[in-house]
Amino acid sequence: MTEQTSFQAKFILDKAHFTECYTQTSTVEHNRKTYFKANILTIFGLFILLFTPVNPYTAWFVIGLGLVESLSVYYHQPWWVFRQMLSKASNSEVTLTIDEQGILTESFHVNARLLWADVTDVKETELGFVIFFQLGKNQSKHYLSKSILSSDAQAFIKAQVAPST
């Protein structure tokens, strides 16, 4: 008879959790390439304003779009965390169960199971695990914080995704 392995943890979806999720999974960088679209809009607006007879309101509108785009890139993290805090799941308790089948997430608002067969990759970060999985044709990701996982659960996750030889 084989022994079933199962790990359970509970946590609250609070601001600290959402901030950790963002910092560990975000791919947004603050460099010239990220601000390219904002810079192009601003330069185009200035060009319209200075070198064409077009109504100046149009030029100022395009310049404003460039500035809004810059702000959206610069404040991406606080905006994302704020939107998560506005969700109905915010500040609710989540029960996480990790077993041979996969990862089960249960709360008042969500009951979801991620099967190990659907997992395509797991990236370990300093604070947790980013689990990549296939959702239809789209690649998605799920974050698990090490702070809520026991060392046995962490070892179990690593063993589940280790390539079998």
Rank of each mutant, 00 (worst) to 15 (best):
T2L: 11
T5L: 10
S6L: 11
S6V: 09
F7H: 04
K10Y: 05
D14K: 11
D14I: 09
A16K: 12
A16V: 08
H17A: 10
F18I: 07
C21F: 13
C21S: 12
Y22H: 12
T23R: 14
T23V: 15
T27W: 07
V28M: 15
K33H: 05
T34V: 02
F36H: 04
F36Y: 06
F36I: 03
I40L: 07
I40R: 01
L41W: 09
L41I: 09
I43F: 12
I43M: 12
I43W: 06
F44M: 12
L46Q: 04
F47S: 12
L49F: 10
L50A: 13
T52K: 03
T52A: 05
P56L: 13
Y57R: 09
Y57H: 08
Y57A: 09
W60L: 15
F61D: 01
F61W: 12
L65D: 00
G66H: 02
V68A: 07
E69N: 09
L71M: 13
Y74M: 11
Y74R: 08
Y75P: 00
W80L: 14
W80P: 07
A89D: 09
S90C: 03
S90A: 09
V94W: 04
T95L: 09
L96W: 01
L96A: 06
I98N: 04
I98H: 04
E100W: 07
Q101I: 14
G102D: 00
G102C: 00
G102L: 00
I103R: 00
T105D: 10
E106K: 14
E106P: 09
S107M: 12
H109A: 14
V110L: 11
A112N: 15
R113P: 06
R113K: 14
W116S: 03
D118G: 01
D118H: 04
D118F: 02
D121F: 13
K123C: 04
K123R: 09
K123I: 08
K123V: 10
T125M: 04
E126W: 14
E126M: 13
L127P: 01
G128E: 00
G128Q: 00
V130W: 00
G136Y: 03
G136S: 05
N138V: 14
S140I: 03
S140P: 01
K141Q: 15
Y143H: 03
K146V: 03
S147G: 11
S147P: 06
I148H: 09
I148W: 04
S150M: 02
S150Y: 02
S151A: 05
A153F: 02
A153L: 05
Q154E: 02
A155S: 13
F156H: 08
A159I: 04
A162E: 14
P163G: 05
T165P: 13
